[in-house]
Design a binder for these strands. Structure first.
Lengths: 253, 253
DNA sequence: TTGGTGGTCTTGTACCAACAACTTGATGCC
DNA sequence: GGCATCAAGTTGTTGGTACAAGACCACCAA
């Protein structure tokens, strides 16, 4: 049978069309693999290849023992990164808790799990903080941001150890202060450099965030500098693509 | 055999470890499926499941008839979006050709394929441009940005038709002007709103860009406003994750 | 030298079978 | 009623086979 496109491609195309036209609504259960076998007169393997294709595109999601379902897209959280902590319009909250207040406004319950460690910096972190990777130490605050019990993002902050030694930043608690936590200990960030990359999550990230298959992440790395251009902090945020929008406002002064 | 983790998980973990430890270098060919069958004493099906896992993580890439290879990451192009076209430091070029000049600086050859059409706007575009989706028309400039024959990004610009009627923007050519093309016809953008989302590419994007499997894309939507807060343009750029870094500088005035 | 031709190697597609693991709802016991 | 148990249904895992399709190389012929 000299067909050009493989059968499982055409089955996937057919199902994708049904999803895009709305004949299969978000959250709705698809036919079972066995039913699809009969409908298309193919083997179960071929059906599974087609379903895998849709899974990889993020269109459906399968659960063992339950069935396959059209994936419903979450209403994404919009995240405005174009404001300095020190002049945040969001009622005097730090950037770390801009998040908390934005979430709270939408009637949901934010929570953060914080873990603090002292570590030798990785090559990338050392470069961003202009530290010697052999001798310097960094204080690392690893946060898991949770909304209504569901993990939403990972946010890890790295500080040069000598700058924050003995301050509240070393407490494994959810610290917040008006104007930003760094400002509260006398470190004023006047400039950020943000770099955003896109990739598939690592296994560890995928587990911590409970990500469904085929969910890419944005990696947002923000380096904060004081007015002498000394780097004070690197914050790396892992934002799952299915639940976040990153926003910037760029304007002439 | 009451094992907790499936065999193909463990095989994938093993191979992933080899890649991460550098025992398998980027670009290097993996053992063939048949050899892996013998080495792990499993069926080809199981080997393929393990390889698929690594493919989905973006770690390897397979070619029919050639073999499987450790994926080498490209040196990503850094893309600075925090500058207005009108005050670009990059030798008086438009944003659209900030790209061209950055690429040219690194000794590679940039090229753009441009297609211009007039269309009724989608709901999203109409909302961004504050147009009536029933009656309004938009001029759409679809560009494929190519570096050394390889497609690198898609950049589609949408203009309200009444604003650009009869101007150079309606020519299906690679137009450029000092200070930006819009400025050259009297439309001055003083503010942008950028929204970045992350998702898997659609089939069409994947084909146009020749993306390997498991390559997510960043969708960068920039809406430009004049000083009366009237939207002048929406530009949607599709940036494959394996070859782009998005950068912003955020500073106090 | 050049070009085509064919054979071999490798991954891709498609089929079949069996059991495991998990979910869900029904059943029945206390 | 409440709770444990069971059975049926569904996807997950693993084994097998066969042929197709693309890549690559060696060989031969012009």
């Amino acid at each position: 049978m000299g067909e050009q496109t493989p059968r499982y491609h055409r089955i996937a195309d057919d199902l994708r069309g049904q999803i895009e036209r709305g004949e299969l609504a978000p959250g709705q259960q698809l036919l079972t693999e066995f039913e699809l076998m009969e409908q298309y007169a193919v083997s179960r393997n071929t059906v599974r290849l087609a379903l895998r294709r849709l899974t990889d595109e993020g269109l459906i999601i399968a659960g063992q023992g339950r069935g396959s379902f059209v994936r419903k897209q979450l209403t994404p959280a919009v995240w405005d990164w174009s404001v300095l902590e020190s002049r945040s319009r969001h009622r005097s909250d730090a950037n770390g808790d801009q998040w908390a207040s934005v979430v709270a406004e939408s009637g949901r319950e934010p929570r953060q799990e914080v873990k603090v460690t002292i570590r030798r910096p990785s090559a990338e972190i050392a470069r961003q903080l202009q530290l010697d990777p052999e001798t310097a130490l960094t204080v690392v605050r690893e946060r898991v941001r949770i909304v209504d019990q569901d993990p939403y993002a990972l946010a890890d902050s790295y500080f040069p150890e000598e700058l924050v030694r003995g301050t509240a930043l070393m407490l494994p608690e959810d610290v917040a202060a008006p104007g930003g936590v760094l400002a509260s200990i006398g470190l004023i960030q006047v400039r950020y450099q943000d770099e955003i990359t896109v990739r598939m999550p690592t296994r560890g990230e995928s587990e911590k965030l409970g990500l469904p298959a085929a969910t890419p992440v944005a990696v947002h790395m923000r380096t904060g500098y004081d007015k002498g251009d000394r780097p004070l902090r690197v914050m790396i945020t892992i934002l799952p693509g299915d639940r976040h929008v990153i926003r910037y406002d760029v304007s002439a002064e």
